[in-house]
């Protein structure tokens, strides 16, 4: 992508600005669609119809919401630490947005084709913790601080299962570059890492149980990392009012929301790229190519976004100690077994 832009525009700063802004072109419309999707899915699960008046079946409601949030008065508590309070939402969004740089949307587009892509994503998304802690601390509100502390503990603990389950896929594909990982799985759904990758049949069958388990764990840990139900303790509204973003209003609040939805897609994108063939077509050569690649990637990603919404509106919330228990005593040991087994199978 950069090469193309560089040929067109020469080696200027503009190239980097355009290159960096491209994922935003995806995230903003995506966020609008997902807000609507979330409302509609939840409504139909609950025997309601959700928005019906703004546009056909209320499709314009997210736009109206954005306009409303833009117009809202931006209140900052008198005793808040104003600098940190203003900085926090952008830092949270930055963490998730930077992660999009290494996501291969299609065979033709990846923000930055770096060799340590997965590693980079795991590292950079942790930046959100700092933003959340900042938000909680700067609000000068005990409930916000509670939310921030919970969030920090949660994200740090769930980093372990996430990294380990990423490791399982990386061991099979042999690369940390997501574009290479995706290329590795080319040639139909049978070659996806979740089904053992394009390896000899006996190896595939031996790998299958372990890849399946680590795939599910990656998804679960991903939900936990983005603080969605059943792991939404940092913003558990029935306990902590709204957690770290209690005191936020207007556009700052909207940016927290944007960051959350961006994170939701980022998690889905990582799952899809590592385990479900990324932008590759499930039918081999049929419907493949850069444009179809983008379609497949977004379609798979949106499926997992839908899954997260579905789970959110079905399950209750875990308690703090149960959350930690799940991470350290259930998911992590399972993944250690997976890593050893996969390594053993691959070597022998």
């Amino acid at each position: 992508m950069y090469e193309l832009l560089q040929q067109l525009l020469g080696d200027s700063i503009l190239v980097y600005v355009i290159g960096a802004a491209l994922p935003l072109l995806f995230i903003l419309p995506y966020a609008l669609v997902t807000v609507l999707l979330e409302m509609k899915v939840s409504a139909h699960m609950q025997d309601r119809v959700a928005y019906m008046y703004t546009g056909w079946h209320g499709v314009l409601q997210p736009v109206a919401d954005i306009v409303k949030l833009l117009q809202k008065e931006d209140t900052i508590p008198g005793v808040a630490d104003k600098t940190l309070f203003r900085l926090a939402p952008y830092l949270v969004f930055m963490g998730s947005y930077a992660g999009f740089a290494a996501i291969p949307f299609s065979s033709a587009y990846i923000g930055s084709d770096i060799d340590l892509g997965v590693f980079y994503i795991v590292a950079i998304t942790s930046l959100a913790v700092i933003g959340i802690l900042m938000a909680g601390w700067a609000s000068n509100n005990k409930w916000s601080l509670f939310g921030a502390m919970r969030s920090a503990a949660q994200i740090v603990s769930y980093e372990i299962p996430t990294a380990l389950s990423i490791l399982v896929a990386v061991m099979i594909t042999g690369s940390l570059n997501l574009q290479d990982v995706t290329h590795f799985q080319d040639g139909g759904f049978w070659n996806w890492v979740v089904f053992g990758g394009p390896l000899p049949l006996t190896q595939k069958l031996l790998l299958l149980p372990f890849t399946l388990v680590s795939f599910f764990i990656l998804f679960i840990a991903g939900i936990a990392e983005v603080n969605r139900t059943p792991f939404d303790l940092p913003e558990a509204e029935s306990e902590l009012v709204q957690g770290y973003n209690t005191e936020y209003s207007g556009m700052k609040f909207a940016i927290f929301y944007l960051a959350e939805y961006a994170n939701v897609f980022l998690v889905s994108a990582i799952v899809v790229s590592l385990y479900l063939g990324g932008w590759t077509s499930p039918f081999g050569e049929f419907m493949s190519g850069p444009i179809w690649g983008f379609f497949w990637f977004v379609a798979k990603g949106m499926f997992f976004v839908f899954m997260q919404i579905w789970i959110r509106w079905t399950l209750p919330r875990l308690r703090v100690d149960q959350l930690m228990y799940t991470s350290w005593k259930v998911l992590t040991p399972f993944l250690f077994v997976c890593i050893f087994a996969v390594g053993f199978i691959l070597v022998v």
């Binding site: 025997d47 309601r48 558990a236 029935s238 079905t314």
Partner: peptide, 16 residues
């Protein structure tokens, strides 16, 4: 009570 536990859907079923 469902809402207290974080489950929103049963609440609206009950209200229905």
């Amino acid at each position: 009570y469902g809402i207290d536990m974080g489950a929103f859907t049963p609440f609206l079923w009950c209200f229905r």
